[in-house]
């Protein structure tokens, strides 16, 4: 795996991330660990980019680095013509209402001491958007839009709501400043399947209603496929494959993508489990990542070249199809979708 390279970037994009690297200090040593290593991707206006991979692949770190929380170690994050990494202090703060985030745990991401009305209205107060009356009307509007009755809910506190309702309230808070981009970090993985479906449908509605662009970070491929226009697969801080969802699942070119697909439990006992691509072991330590392709230690088809050379992202078929893979031996066999 994986990959560096920028060949897959498009000319027109609302957000363009180039050669992004995020390092953290290792406690008790002078070493630094690279959570994200030289990755590039872009998101077009109105598009949803799904970012998938296992825990520790750097997908959440990438999401936060876009928001400069914290700022990346190196690389460029260009949002709507502005280089985010150059912004400091007030200039960076002024950009914040345009980029919002929704977190995994809806209950802990809401202040338990505030009422729902205060939580959703706070961004408007901070940015002094309109009069108190206009602010209240806006809070009512977004709460209604996410399916929460403002008359019943605005004066109650988060603990009185279920996880699914709290996630709706988080979404209301994120859209209230009318952002351009929302970064959703595992927004449905703490929810029951039935509630998950409600929240996914809601995110799609919000996207068309408020003209949002989204980065959707998750480990569940079926969920990501449902909401995304493009999907980027990450492994140990690197980019493996970028593709429109249908092509990614019908013809995964990266062995890691293939393994992820085969690991999805299937809600049908008649479908036999696929063991051929079952991954063994854990993610290697990012402190000393494998040389060459980082996936080679778990890849069933790794060769010598994979230890020595890092594969670059290159087009699968016609570059206009937007399917890119970073692998020396990409797969060419289509998968029967189950």
């Amino acid at each position: 795996m994986a990959g560096s390279g920028t060949a897959h970037l498009r000319d027109e994009a609302l957000l363009r991330v180039e050669n992004l690297t995020v390092e953290f200090p290792v406690p008790g040593s002078s070493a630094r660990v690279q959570a994200v290593s030289n990755i590039s991707f872009d998101v077009a206006d109105g598009e949803t980019l799904g970012l998938v991979g296992e825990s520790g692949c750097g997908k959440s770190t990438t999401g936060k680095a876009i928001l400069q929380l914290p700022a990346p170690t190196s690389g460029s994050v260009r949002f709507d013509g502005v280089e985010m990494t150059d912004q400091r202090g007030e200039a960076l703060r002024a950009l914040r209402p345009r980029l919002q985030m929704i977190f995994q745990d809806p209950i802990s991401s809401l202040n338990p001491r505030r009422t729902v009305g205060q939580i959703v209205g706070e961004p408007l107060k901070i940015w002094k958007r309109g009069s108190a009356k206009e602010q209240a009307a806006k809070v009512d509007e977004v709460l209604r839009a996410v399916g929460v009755d403002p008359d019943a809910a605005a004066d109650r506190r988060p603990h009185e709501f279920s996880g699914g309702q709290c996630q709706r309230i988080s979404i209301a808070r994120a859209v209230v400043t009318e952002p351009k981009i929302i970064i959703c970090d595992e927004p449905v993985s703490a929810l029951d399947v039935s509630v998950q479906a409600q929240v996914l449908n809601l995110l799609e509605e919000m996207k068309s209603r408020y003209g949002l662009t989204m980065i959707f970070i998750a480990h569940d491929l079926a969920v990501v496929k449902n909401v995304s226009d493009r999907i980027a697969v990450m492994y140990l801080g690197k980019m493996c494959e970028v593709s429109p969802p249908d092509a990614l699942f019908a013809e995964p070119a990266h062995p890691y993508t293939r393994a992820l697909i085969s690991a999805i439990p299937h809600p049908d006992p008649e479908v036999p489990a696929e063991n051929e691509w079952r991954l063994e072991g854990d993610l290697p330590s990012p402190l000393s990542p494998p040389s060459g392709c980082r996936f080679r230690t778990r890849c069933p088809q790794a060769q010598d070249v994979c230890t020595t050379a890092e594969p670059q992202l290159s087009a699968v078929g016609d570059p206009a199809d937007g399917h890119w893979v970073a692998c020396h031996f990409p797969l060419a066999t289509p998968v029967a979708i189950r």
Binding site: S194, Q196, A197, A222, V223, N226, V227, F249, P267
Partner: peptide, 30 residues
């Protein structure tokens, strides 16, 4: 799975996003 009788079971199963469905298929949420 082949002959489910309870509407709740059916609804649970239908709310799972499926890889065989195209992107942006509206989910049959409960």
């Amino acid at each position: 799975f082949t002959r489910m009788a309870m509407p709740y079971t059916e609804a649970l199963l239908n709310s799972i996003p499926r890889l065989s469905d195209p992107s942006h298929t509206r989910l049959d949420a409960i």
